[in-house]
Amino acid sequence: MDDTDLRRRLTPEQYHVTQDGGTERAFTGEYWDCHDDGVYRCVVCDAPLYTSDTKYDSGTGWPSFWQPIEGAVDTRLDTSHGMVRTEVVCASCGAHLGHVFDDGPRPTGQRFCMNSCALRLDRDTDPTGADRAGSP
């Protein structure tokens, strides 16, 4: 996707987070306290990333998941801001999503701490991937 199209489609905050590696403020994003079922998708390319079945309340103010959909994300070393962290990016388009930490719950022990503005919750798809549109 070219930069002009991205800037037109995304809000300034979405662009800053996904393209510049920014971070939204804690407790301000749309999904940090969302408990709806569905599939969380990349706001840039619409790839499925996480299911609501793996989302949990980490108390951090960002949506947190203990596991991504298989093959949905990649990780990179992030040494910005004087820290050493593991950055999480969309495997399909490379958009910055957040970071992963080793202080999550079982069964993985990981906390994929995501920016709400990098995600779009698809409530028409259940966590198993079945289409809910048109179901009774």
Rank of each mutant, 00 (worst) to 15 (best):
K55H: 10
G22R: 06
C93Q: 06
P63L: 05
H96S: 06
V84I: 15
Q110P: 00
L121N: 00
V73R: 00
E13P: 00
T125Q: 12
L6D: 05
I69V: 06
Q110T: 02
H16S: 08
R123T: 15
D46T: 13
D74G: 13
R9T: 08
V88K: 03
R132N: 12
P63G: 01
E24N: 11
R9P: 00
D37A: 13
Y31G: 08
V73N: 04
S52T: 03
D74I: 13
T54V: 09
G22H: 03
G134Y: 13
D20C: 09
T86F: 04
D103P: 02
S116E: 06
V39C: 07
T18R: 04
M1P: 07
C93N: 07
V100C: 08
V39E: 00
D2H: 07
M1S: 10
T54F: 07
D37M: 02
Y56M: 02
L97W: 10
D3C: 03
D124L: 15
A26L: 06
A72P: 05
P12T: 07
F101V: 13
N115P: 06
A133L: 13
A72C: 09
L119M: 12
C42V: 08
I69H: 02
G104C: 11
D46P: 00
M83E: 05
A133M: 08
E70I: 07
H35A: 08
G71C: 11
C42A: 08
C93G: 09
L10Q: 05
D103T: 09
D102N: 10
